[in-house]
């Protein structure tokens, strides 16, 4: 078969079920009917499998009610409701 563009010799390849004719001269590729669609379908399958990152794992549940990391590690001292320093701090600058 002759290349329709440069009249060079075309060689036939079979890759993953797709039939490709490539010109030895200009390296142009000739596809049979339906083969472009086959390639497109294979490309999208490949990119789904390889390029799309896996969905990130769901973040751990946030305990919005928890004190910050630098906060008191235990359950606190909030029994001192009449402590003079506590009341002073609560009500004044």
């Amino acid at each position: 078969m002759q290349c329709p563009k440069c009249r060079g010799n075309m060689r036939t390849y079979e890759r993953n079920g797709v039939h490709i004719d490539q010109c030895d001269g200009c390296r142009g590729i000739f596809l049979d009917y339906g083969e472009l669609e086959t390639l497109t379908r294979m490309e999208s399958q490949w990119s789904q499998q390889h390029s799309a990152p896996p969905p990130p794992p769901p973040p751990p549940p946030m305990h919005h009610g928890a004190p910050p990391a630098w906060g008191a590690p235990h359950h606190g001292h909030y029994g001192h409701h009449r402590n003079r320093s506590w009341v002073g701090m609560l009500f004044s600058s």
């Binding site: 004190p67 910050p68 008191a72 001292h77 701090m89």
Partner: peptide
């Protein structure tokens, strides 16, 4: 900032802070 600091320090009852 004051109630937040009191809660973080463990001085303010968590129920009050929430």
């Amino acid at each position: 900032a004051r109630p937040a600091a009191w809660f973080a320090a463990g001085l303010l009852d968590p129920e009050v802070w929430h």
